[in-house]
């Protein structure tokens, strides 16, 4: 149905009206404040202080010179470098195993997905109790097998790895879910063709069919995982407060501290701009790579 010109005009007006509230709110609540961050990052505005003046890129210079922030960025990178690959590869392996178990697969899928729905703050405190230096289950087990007890969350050389472990615990289930969904879209025909061509089990089957067919999902999972790992906040805020001695301080926690504890809005805004750069960069990379793949595929 093409409709008359009047019809079309009415529909255009309806479209504008229906989209207007969302467009306005998007501008007001997302784009305006997000650009505001960019502006604030160029000022020395402090919350509660009257007025502010332009200081150019000084906040960015301060940020790069600040040992604590440098440590925080380094910790974030290390944390992501551990959690992302481990949780992705482990999830891929588990997904392939689940796919092969048949009826019990649903049970494992449910189990691995539980951490995604569970409140991380509660689960972090549960992990804290499990890892408690004196009565935690892990240390009880360590002591029972004649090993020394560990202060998992207060030992500066261990704390970040402990958080990374909890991060993997949280991320794996989500990634398993995505991989299982991806695996289910691979046509059965392809596995059968591979079986006749000689790749009927184990690694050769994985290399010939599973891995290449999962490539788009893997790319997506990688980007999502990277974004979520560099956004880690809860476990730090609940379990370590960035300590001991800054050993677990990461970018979002630092940003939160600078903005809402020290009210150094200028510096925090500069950090927020950097954070946006990292996250948006990953998303754009995803889109570009995916686009290129689908054009060549």
């Amino acid at each position: 149905m093409t409709g008359s010109t009047a019809d079309l005009r009415a529909r255009r007006r309806a479209g504008l009206l229906l989209a207007a509230p969302a467009a306005l709110l998007l501008a007001l609540l997302l784009f305006l404040p997000s650009s505001g961050v960019l502006v604030l990052s160029l000022t020395d505005y402090r919350f509660g202080m009257p007025g502010a003046s332009w200081i150019g890129l000084e906040n960015y210079a301060r940020m790069l010179a600040d040992d604590r922030i440098r440590q925080s960025l380094g910790n974030t990178a290390l944390y992501a470098a551990i959690v992302a690959p481990v949780s992705i590869l482990l999830a891929l392996w588990l997904a392939v195993l689940i796919e092969a178990t048949g009826r019990l697969g649903g049970f494992f899928r449910t189990v691995f997905f539980l951490p995604v729905t569970a409140t991380l703050v509660a689960m972090a405190t549960a992990w804290e109790v499990v890892l408690h230096p004196s009565f935690g289950m892990v240390n009880v087990a360590l002591a029972a097998s004649g090993l020394e007890k560990e202060r998992f969350l207060s030992d500066p050389s261990l704390a970040l790895y402990t958080l990374a472990f909890i991060g993997v615990w949280k991320m794996v289930g989500y990634n398993v879910l995505l991989f299982v969904a991806g695996l289910s879209t691979i046509p059965k025909d392809l596995y059968e063709a591979a079986a006749i061509d000689g790749a009927d089990r184990g690694w050769s089957r994985f290399a010939m069919v599973t891995w290449p067919m999962l490539a788009p999902v893997t790319l997506f999972v990688t980007v999502i995982t990277l974004i979520r790992t560099v956004s880690e906040f809860e476990t730090i805020a609940v379990l370590t407060n960035g300590g001991p001695n800054g050993a677990t301080e990461m970018v979002l926690y630092t940003l939160y501290q600078e903005a809402f504890r020290y009210f150094d809005i200028g510096l925090a805004s500069a950090l927020a701009v950097c954070f946006l750069g990292i996250v948006a960069g990953a998303s754009i990379l995803n889109i570009v790579l995916f686009d290129r793949r689908s054009r060549h595929g």
Binding site: D189, L190, E192, A193, A195, I196, D200, G297
Partner: peptide, 19 residues
């Protein structure tokens, strides 16, 4: 195993490896 039977199979969907 299918690979050892000396047969070739052409699928209705062709089942070509897309990559």
């Amino acid at each position: 195993r299918p690979r050892d039977r000396g047969v070739a199979f052409v699928f209705q969907s062709y089942a070509l490896y897309p990559h």
